[in-house]
Each structure stands twice: as C-alpha cells, then as structure tokens.
C-alpha cells in the first residue's frame, strides 16, 4: 500500500513541471502562437534559478527569478514570432538552441568540469487536516509548498482563459484575428502578452524542476519535458484542466521509469525503461488524433492591414 501511495505521490511531483509548461502552452497557443519556444523559457529559468539559489540560498527568490527569466525569453521570442512573423515552429526551435548553447557554455566556463554543486531542496509540508485523509491525503497533500500553488494555478488559469474578458480576447485572437481586430482588440499586443504569460508559466516549471526536484543544473536538464507539456496541452484540448490530466499521465510514466528498476522480478535495460515517457507521449498523441481542432489561426502570422 505504502509503495502505491509513494508511486502516485512522486508521479504528482514529477508531473508538476510538465503541467506548468502545459498551462503556459494553453495561453500561448490559444492566442494562435505555436509554443515551440517553451523549452527555451524552461531551460533558461532552470539556469537562472539555480544561479540565484547558489548566490542567496533563498528558494523563493530563486523561483521568482526563474519565472521572470522565462518571461523575458518568451518576450524576445514574441518579437520574432508575433511582430516580424517568422515561422513560429523554427524560430521556437532556434530559441531552444540558443538558450541551450548559452546555458551549457556558461556552465562550462564558470563551473568548469566539476559542475554545479548540489544544494538542499526545500522539504515537504503536510497540510494539517487534509493530509489526514486516507490515501488521497498522503498522495495529494504531502508535497512541497510550491506544488500546492500549482493546485490553485490550474483552476485559476481555466477561469482566466474561459471566463474572463481577457481570456475571451485571447481566444478570439487565436480563432479569427482579423475579426478580433475589427472589433478593436489589439491582435499583436494580445498575442505578445499571451506568449509572455506562457513563458512565465514555463519558467515556473523550469524553476520548480531545478530547485525542487534536481537541486542542481546540468546540461540540457529539461530533456523532453517541454515537448511533453506541448503534447499535454494538445491532448487536453488547450484547456488547463484537461492539460493537467494529460500531464499526470506523463508524471505516472516518469514515476514508473524511476521505480520499475527497483522491482526485483523485472529485468529491463535502463534505456528501454527511459523510453516509457516518450512511448506514453506517442500513445497520447495517437489517442487524441483527429478529435482536437487546434485554434484556427494557430501558427499563422497576422499583420494589421
């Protein structure tokens, strides 16, 4: 029983960075901008938050710094993708390359071969009454503090995107920009802000990954998490709640990857086990299939006439 509880508990912890990226992708793609850049925001945020953590030792400052870094990188991306109108997919990829090169070079130059020293991660906090609920309490409410914030972030983002005026504007811009323009919504501005908010969320995911889970910075430490975030958003139909569910699938797969080798009767090569999240991603994509109609103006450049 305890091992099952532990399995789900760690699945939620592992799903959180992917989940945050997925929420960010919802904002960005609902406004019609393909969020291929989320890996750059995430990785940049990992680096900045680790640097701040080493400098000040303050986890809150580190995460705030990481979130901000993600936003700034996304703002730069929006200049090229939204204003100039370069191919969003390829420019996103280019941003990923640039940030990857920048962080890896800085890592090599400042910390040389030794790498960044490991630091202590903030501990878990059990919520007094809720964590007493059998099974569910131990799974959901015995987590690090940051993860409780994420529980709030999901419904809030859903409300913002689907119930608020600003969310309506974002969706209008993503579906039919010229129509939105004709009723006075500033298309480029709305898209830019949506992309930056997306970057803030991706940055938050990166910061939590670095500060909370890994406790150090390594080259290309985000792996494929940002892609999984994009896939989660796709599977969830660009709704934060649906995306959260999809991100949990990846959390479960990743948790399985970490735990299956501890089982005595299963003898799998570690490389095969590492494939689990990717295979899960492919299965998720295939299951979603044609059922998802993406925002009509996604990846399409809009120029004010």
């Amino acid at each position: 029983m305890t091992s099952i509880v532990l399995y789900f508990n760690s699945a939620i912890t592992l799903a959180v960075p992917i989940l945050l990226v997925a929420i960010g992708v919802c904002y960005s793609e609902k406004s019609g901008v393909y969020a291929m850049n989320s890996d750059s925001s995430m990785l940049g945020s990992c680096f900045i938050s680790v640097a701040i953590m080493l400098g000040t030792g303050n986890a809150v400052l580190a995460i705030l710094g990481g979130v901000l870094a993600g936003g700034i990188i996304a703002a730069l991306f929006s200049i090229f993708a939204v204003r100039i109108g370069a191919n969003q997919c390829l420019i996103g990829l280019a941003f990923n390359f640039t940030v990857m090169g920048l962080t890896s070079s800085l890592l090599r130059l400042f910390w040389n071969t030794g790498g960044i020293p490991q630091f202590a991660q903030p501990g878990r906090v059990a919520i007094p009454l809720l964590s007493q609920i059998p099974v569910i309490g131990a799974i959901l409410f015995n987590q690090p503090v940051m993860i409780y914030l994420v529980y709030i972030m999901v419904p809030v983002s859903w409300w913002v995107l689907f119930k608020s005026t600003w969310g309506l504007q974002i969706r209008a811009v993503g579906e039919n920009p010229s129509c939105a323009d004709s009723v006075g919504i500033r298309v480029i501005r709305t898209r830019t802000i949506a992309v930056i908010v997306g970057g803030l969320f991706s940055g938050c995911g990166g910061a939590i990954l670095a500060v909370q889970q890994v406790g150090t910075f390594t080259e290309e430490m985000t792996g494929a998490r940002a892609w999984m975030g994009i896939i989660s958003a796709y599977f969830g139909g660009w709704s934060p709640i649906g995306s959260a569910g999809a991100a949990l699938v990846f959390g479960l797969a990743e948790s399985l990857e970490k735990r299956i080798q501890l089982l005595p009767f299963i003898n799998l090569s570690s490389y095969v086990v590492q494939m689990f999240p990717y295979i899960a991603a492919l299965i998720v994509i295939v299951l979603t299939g044609r059922n998802r109609r993406h925002p009509a103006a996604m990846a399409k450049y809009y120029q004010k006439q």
Binding site: L93, F95, F97, T98, G101, S105, L109
Partner: peptide, 17 residues
Amino acid sequence: PSALLSLIKGCIVIFVM
C-alpha cells in the same frame, strides 16, 4: 565550450527566418 555551436546555430536560424 563546444556548446557554443548550439548558440551559433540558434542565432543563424533566428536571423535566416
């Protein structure tokens, strides 16, 4: 650092696109 190549790659694509 050889990772500099990634940086150059990224900048090239940004400007070409």
